[in-house]
């Protein structure tokens, strides 16, 4: 279970929050000119990285406000939370601990006890 820092209320238990998927997905600006393939990209396809990930959360059982977070999906470590409308921090700011795209991190995964470095 995660401890999440709401930018408005401070640190609260995960049970108060709901995840809202990838952050900073923008709707096409000129919908009448967008092809079916581009619509498919916008409607169905989301990033799914193993590592640093920008995502949205809502403090459903609290202030009910939406905010963004940067999380490492290979360890579930939340690196930063920030308000909607704020500029997302550059991804290079965060160090990805993964050795390969599908590899396991040093700590934090169910497999780490059986994986030799």
């Amino acid at each position: 279970m995660l401890l999440i820092k709401c930018p408005y209320c401070g640190e609260r238990d995960q049970s108060e929050f709901t995840n809202g998927g990838e952050a900073h997905v923008t709707r096409p600006k000129n919908p009448e000119q967008v092809t079916d393939r581009e619509w498919a990209e916008y409607v169905f396809i989301r990033s799914n990285p193993k590592g640093i990930y920008y995502e949205r959360w809502v403090h459903s059982h609290g202030c009910k406000k939406w905010f963004n977070a940067v999380r490492n999906t290979s360890t579930d470590e939340i690196l930063l939370t920030y308000k909607i409308g704020e500029t997302p921090p550059p991804i290079k700011k965060f160090q990805n601990t993964l050795k390969s795209p599908s590899g396991e991190p040093d700590v934090g995964s169910g497999n780490f006890t059986v994986k030799k470095p």
Binding site: M1, S15, K50, E55, R71, T73, S74, D76, G110
Partner: peptide, 13 residues
């Protein structure tokens, strides 16, 4: 679990 993750354990809730 209600969020994307690659940790092969999941949340206790």
């Amino acid at each position: 679990d209600g969020y994307n993750s690659f940790t092969q354990r999941g949340g206790y809730n």
